[in-house]
Design a protein around this nucleic acid. Structure first.
Lengths: 232, 232
DNA sequence: TTTTTGCAAAGTGTCGACAGTATTGCCCGT
DNA sequence: ACGGGCAATACTGTCGACACTTTGCAAAAA
């Protein structure tokens, strides 16, 4: 998969933003934790300027929050945030799958099949999650709408952060989740390979919604129940 | 409608970003035009630091682009960009309307009715566009998903920029567009007032898709035709 | 002991500077 | 007249500094 996207400028700020993003997602920095510029500048061995720019980037991506006083902290997550993130994923990925279905090729099918095979053999839950997200990313990119993919990236990072920090998302039913999730992926692939945009949109929406309920069965349901019914 | 959103930090950078956003949308700066930091710093009577930060914000919003060398220019728009923007709007607003329908109140209905009345009396095309966008914004906010609204803002600005710069979007059929558009808004309101999430989602998607074709009948259609059929 | 006041420490917002690099335009060779 | 190369120009990326504001803590008052 070739990335033609507008190359980000290659500077310290971008480097730091990427590293900080990884660290926030993986939990090195915890939600609510203060991110002071001088401290981070020291950590990275640079001055405050690039750190400051990186913070702006992360704020735009929703991983950190600015207080009105200017202080920066890692964004905090509650149940409601998980709901919002999932709703946003459904909105974006439905359209992504719809567009992808219309342009789907056999090579795409093979890519997804390989991914699913790897998912089944994934040794750890973390490894599985990585493959899972990568597959969703592939479909989004295949939709061919660069803006949609960009917006999706923001949500994706927030989703990954939520997986790390909303602890009951890590809970007991990992094995079942994985089996269930792979099954969902197969359904998505079927719709895409059949080049049925509407079906693909509905199936992937249902898959995302179901997944999160496997992760967190008690997540308050805000989506009107009719919204993702697989009617017909 | 009260905005609880995380307050942006109130500094020069943010001020400049807002002003620049307005200027880019309204065409003071034209697509492709170079935006050099020293020149902008002079224009605003500040140093380069806040200008630089503002540029990062605008890049995130998709209004400007960084070249790999670091130079900044106003993002350029082609036909394909209009398609992308509209697809993104449909993705986000469908979900927004779906969520809004489930929480819709009579007061919301009255707000929209007033908006529609104003739209009918709008003196100019520009005035009408403003009311149009404001109504869509209201619905997005009423969806109650802060992330969805934030993502939508990005697309909204790009859409407004496209309206300004894709010249044939300004074309001949403004009066018909307006009449047609108001009709679409009435259908959306009906679905929302009836609190039918699925109907609202489909109607607003259809409305957006139709609108852009009134603006630009020759816009290449990439959305699979089945995607927004109002079946049933 | 609890609350208030005041002060020191720490952090942000903005600036000007400087080295390195891309761009522009001029001059020269053809 | 025209294209290529080179010098002058302009801009970016990063830094350190400084003023102002917020925060945290400790001492003083209730």
């Amino acid at each position: 998969m070739i990335q033609i996207h507008s190359e980000p400028r290659r500077n310290l700020a971008h480097e730091i933003a990427s590293q900080m993003r990884r660290d926030i997602i993986s939990g090195v920095f915890k939600p609510g934790e203060a991110l002071a510029e001088p401290a981070l500048a020291g950590r990275f061995g640079v001055s405050r300027a690039p750190v400051r720019e990186a913070m702006i980037e992360l704020e735009r991506a929703g991983l950190v929050q600015f207080k009105t006083t200017g202080r920066t902290r890692v964004r905090m997550l509650e149940e409601k945030d998980v709901v919002e993130i999932v709703e946003a994923r459904i909105a974006l990925e439905s359209m992504g799958a719809r567009l992808a279905a219309a342009r789907w090729t056999d090579e795409d099918t093979r890519w997804i099949e390989r991914s699913i095979a790897a998912q089944e053999k994934a040794a750890s839950g973390v490894k599985f999650s990585g493959l899972d997200i990568a597959m969703h990313e592939y479909i989004m990119k295949r939709g061919g709408n660069e803006r949609l993919s960009t917006l999706w990236q923001f949500v994706r990072w927030q989703f990954e952060m939520a997986l790390t920090h909303i602890h009951h998302l890590q809970g007991k039913m990992a094995p079942n989740l994985r089996r269930f999730s792979v099954e969902g992926h197969r359904k998505v692939l079927t719709a895409l390979a059949a080049r049925r945009p509407e079906t693909a949109a509905k199936v992937i929406a249902q898959h995302i919604k179901d997944s999160i309920e496997w992760y967190a069965p008690e997540t308050p349901k805000r989506l009107p129940s009719s919204s993702i019914k697989l009617s017909k």
